[in-house]
C-alpha cells in the first residue's frame, strides 16, 4: 500500500514540477502582460495542487496534513482574485491588451465593444 502511495506521490511531484517550469517559461515567452497572467495561472492552478498532493501522499496522518490542505485551498481561492486585481489595475493604468484580428496578425489597441 505504501509503495502505491510512493509511486503516486512521485508521479504527482514529477507532473507538478514539469508544469511549474512550463508556467515559468510561459511567463517569459508570452507577448504581453495579459497573456502572461494566463501563463502564471498554469503554475498556480495545476502545478501547486499537484505538488502539494504529492507532498500529502508522503506524509503520515497528522495535523500537518490538514495544514497542507489548507494551503492548497488558500492558493486556489486567492489566485483568481489576485489575477483579477492585477488585470484590473493594469487596465486602469492604461495598459491595452494585445488582440489579434481575423487574419491572426497581432495588433495593439482594444476592441472593447461588440
Amino acid at each position: 500500500m505504501s509503495l502505491v502511495f510512493e509511486w503516486l506521490s512521485a508521479l504527482f511531484l514529477f507532473a507538478g514540477g514539469v508544469l511549474c517550469i512550463t508556467g515559468g517559461v510561459g511567463i517569459l515567452r508570452m507577448p504581453d502582460f495579459f497573456a502572461r497572467v494566463h501563463a502564471a495561472g498554469v503554475t498556480e492552478t495545476l502545478a501547486a495542487p499537484l505538488l502539494l498532493i504529492g507532498l500529502m501522499l508522503q506524509m503520515e496522518w497528522s495535523m500537518d496534513l490538514v495544514k497542507v490542505l489548507m494551503i492548497l485551498v488558500f492558493i486556489l481561492a486567492t489566485n483568481p482574485t489576485a489575477s483579477h486585481a492585477m488585470a484590473k489595475a493594469a487596465l486602469h493604468g492604461g495598459q491595452k491588451p494585445l488582440v489579434s484580428d481575423s487574419d491572426g496578425a497581432q495588433t495593439g489597441g482594444a476592441s472593447s465593444n461588440n
Partner: peptide, 24 residues
C-alpha cells in the same frame, strides 16, 4: 485540468499559437 493541458501544449509550441481576444 482540461484547459491547463491545452495551454501547456500552446506554451511549448515553438510557434506560440495564441490569438488573444478581449471582448464583452
Amino acid at each position: 485540468v482540461l484547459s491547463n493541458i491545452a495551454l501547456v501544449r500552446c506554451i511549448w509550441d515553438p510557434a506560440l499559437p495564441i490569438r488573444p481576444v478581449w471582448k464583452r
